[in-house]
Design a protein around this nucleic acid. Structure first.
Ligand SMILES: [Mg+2]
Length: 314
DNA sequence: GCGACAG
DNA sequence: ATCTTGTCGC
């Protein structure tokens, strides 16, 4: 049984990363990658850099200056004034040996003995469970409505929009929602950032609706992109409609992942191209036919509405 | 130095 | 995803 709440929660990855960074003792350094590993996935290393530099409320003092590149370069610091030099000075004053912009004898100076519960590892496990529950079958006959969903952001606030069109392309419903999000973008974990806002905007899940999600479905490293999470958690038909590739490579019009077709290139009526993939309960063929046949592009409408809501928000 | 990592 | 641009007034 999947833990729906786990996928709908606002996991605070900022706090998790801060709780790790604060463990680095004076006189030592650690790396963005080491903290990412302690969070549960090395893929989050760039995100860790972004978290450390984020201008955000912190519940305690976080020694961001002790987090450096894995090759020993001290890198940037956005404290105030001359960032990079200030970072080097702070480390020197703590007893870390530095020559030019490199920490010397990194082996000795690096701290990697973090303690934490690796939230991303648990999330990846849960995604594998989602992947095992995805149905890749379903024809278009029951879909009276196509609901496109997208999210825009302003700081830590998400603005989700759903635009529903019928098969003739008329807009028949629009909904928006606003909620705080404390989970940053991490490649492979988009669902844990956007499921909550999507869910707040979707209203009551409907059987006669194919939900079109801005992001991938099965075209994901664990075959469990945000569209799969959305489909399985809500038990609805869903498809991933992404603007760029996350994983795999194109062969003709097919997106191939581990030798299997995980997605397909589609073109909407306005000429935009998307990578479509199965989310849940609708086949890849069905999804592509529906998207191609629509006389409007609901993805663009949802994107515009989400952006508009974010900009007009107080 | 380049490539690559949805949004 | 967001921000940037140019220019003005406070
Ligand atoms: Mg989006």
């Amino acid at each position: 049984m999947i833990d729906r709440e786990f996928h709908l929660q606002d996991h605070d990855l900022y706090l998790e990363a801060f709780k790790l960074a604060v463990q680095i003792p004076r006189g030592k350094v650690s790396t963005y990658g080491a903290i990412a590993r302690a969070l549960g996935d090395i893929s989050a290393s760039r995100t860790v850099g972004q978290i450390m530099s984020a201008d955000r409320q912190r519940p305690f003092e976080v020694p961001c200056h002790r987090v450096i590149y894995s090759d020993g370069r001290t890198g940037w610091y956005t404290g105030m004034g001359q960032g990079a030099e200030r970072k080097r000075e702070m480390l020197r004053s703590e007893g870390v040996p530095i020559l030019n912009d490199m920490v010397q004898d990194l082996e000795t100076a690096v701290f990697v003995d973090f303690s934490g519960d690796a939230p991303l590892r648990r999330m990846a496990e849960s995604q594998r469970e989602i992947a095992s529950l995805v149905s890749q079958e379903g024809d278009a006959t029951r879909f009276q409505r196509l609901a496109a969903l997208d999210v825009s952001y302003r700081g830590d606030e998400a603005f989700a929009a759903m635009v529903v069109v019928d098969r003739e392309g008329s807009v028949i419903e629009e909904r928006t929602a606003r909620c705080p999000v404390n989970f940053p973008y991490v490649p492979g974990y988009l669902g844990f950032r956007e499921m909550r806002p999507y869910t707040a905007a979707m209203g009551k899940p409907r059987e006669d609706t194919l939900y079109l999600i801005d992001g991938h479905g099965r075209a994901h490293p664990r075959r469990a992109g945000v569209a799969c999470q959305f489909g399985v958690v809500h038990g609805v038909a869903a498809a991933g409609v992404a603007k760029t590739i996350l994983a795999g490579a194109m062969k003709g019009d097919s997106l191939i992942l581990d030798g299997e077709e995980a997605g397909r290139l589609v073109r909407s009526c306005d000429g935009r191209t998307y990578f479509a993939s199965v989310g849940h309960r609708a086949s890849l063929g069905t999804v592509c036919r529906v998207l191609t046949a629509l006389p409007v592009n609901p993805m663009a409408l949802a994107h515009r509405l989400a952006t508009k809501r974010g900009r007009s928000a107080v």
